[in-house]
Amino acid sequence: MPFAVRRLIGTAWACLALFGVGTAGAASPAVDAVLACVPGKPCTTSLPVRMVIVTMFEIGADEGDAPGEFQLWKERRQLNVRIPFPQSWHDLYYNPDTQILAMVTGVGTARSATATMALGLDPRFDLSKAYWLVAGIAGIDPQDASIGSAAWARYSVDGDLVHEIDAREIPKGWASGFFALDRKGPDDPNPPDTDGRTFAMNPKLVDWAYALTKDTPLPDDPGVAAARAAYKGYPNAQRPPFVLIGDQLSAMTFWHGKLMNDWANDWVKRATHGKGEFVTSAMEETGTFQALTYLDKVGRADKQRVMLLRSGSNYSMPPPGVTAADNLLRENEGYSGMRASLESLYLVGSKVVDELLDHWDRYEQAPPQ
């Protein structure tokens, strides 16, 4: 059945749900069987999953109010079957017609790692052929892109497993107080990664996703334009939102400022031995990818089918003439690119989702090249 037809069917079931007609039993007997299973216990039926959408937070309700990362996917993809998931932060939502499953991991590496592992080991789902799209907002480096821009990552680098000396006590000549474990200082080259500090995406899948989406028109508005106009001397920060390839630093500390931004660029380069380029900052990915790496080893997920898309809701450093503290406190009152970044995530991510589902006969067996 063509995907466009399947989407119309999904919309019809969504309308029925509004009038109190249950979608689970009507849409699929398998859904009824899975809903009858007790979470955490054996289940004789599993739902087929073609796409897992991984989001990290929602602001309020799951639909109908100011959106977080999850809401647009739920509303626009008719993810109307709620599946209890008490072993994690948030219940799962599923569309039995498109076989899209969406999750909200909760904020931070601990929640993202445990949520992803819990899903991967859940017998209610067949994830053996599933693609995973991690889609979230981020701080974005004004040297590379503007708020509202969306970056496909080749690498996710951990920024927490480090040595740290307070900046007030670092030796003279050190660029920062951070340096790799088992090293003698920030100028000592990072060792080869052997303990999950750097995660590489499937490079062919990243290139394919970027080629498919690089010309996607992204939303812009006067507020976003005003925010980027302040970044004089940063031409990429002043561009209207666009799609790019750029890597992600995952750290639990919400850092901000030019000096920290310089550290992030240096850290990603060192951790990838010159292959990576820091563009976005977030918290969860290394937890998510550590879990997926373990799940891949037991055939519960395929790490070659994992994609990471982050869009800029705020800049990772202030514009000229503004202190890091002032800018961070101002952004904490409401990210200047929040809504634009959420729309960008959905628009760019949806192109990939539609292509995979429209040609599932081609992509079920092997990822696109």
Rank of each mutant, 00 (worst) to 15 (best):
C37W: 05
L18P: 04
G10K: 00
A4V: 14
V31F: 00
R7K: 14
C15T: 14
A4M: 08
T55I: 09
R6P: 02
W13D: 12
D32K: 08
L8N: 14
T55N: 13
A30I: 00
F19C: 12
V5P: 05
T23I: 15
I9Q: 11
A4P: 10
M51K: 05
K41W: 07
I53V: 14
W13R: 10
V31C: 06
V52Y: 01
L47E: 00
T23W: 12
P39T: 03
S46I: 03
I53N: 09
L18K: 12
V38C: 08
G10D: 08
S28F: 02
P39A: 01
A17S: 15
V54T: 01
V38F: 00
T23F: 06
C37Q: 06
A26R: 11
A27N: 01
R6T: 14
V54A: 04
I53Q: 11
R50M: 05
S46D: 07
L35T: 02
P29F: 04
A33G: 06
L16F: 09
A30G: 07
A17H: 12
I9N: 03
A27V: 02
S28N: 09
A36K: 08
A33V: 01
G40S: 01
I9K: 13
V52G: 10
D32H: 04
L16R: 12
K41A: 12
G25E: 13
L8P: 09
L35A: 06
D32N: 09
C43E: 03
G10S: 15
A12F: 13
V31Y: 02
V38G: 06
V52W: 05
A26I: 08
C43H: 03
V38K: 13
G25P: 10
D32W: 02
T45Q: 07
V21C: 08
T44L: 08
C15F: 10
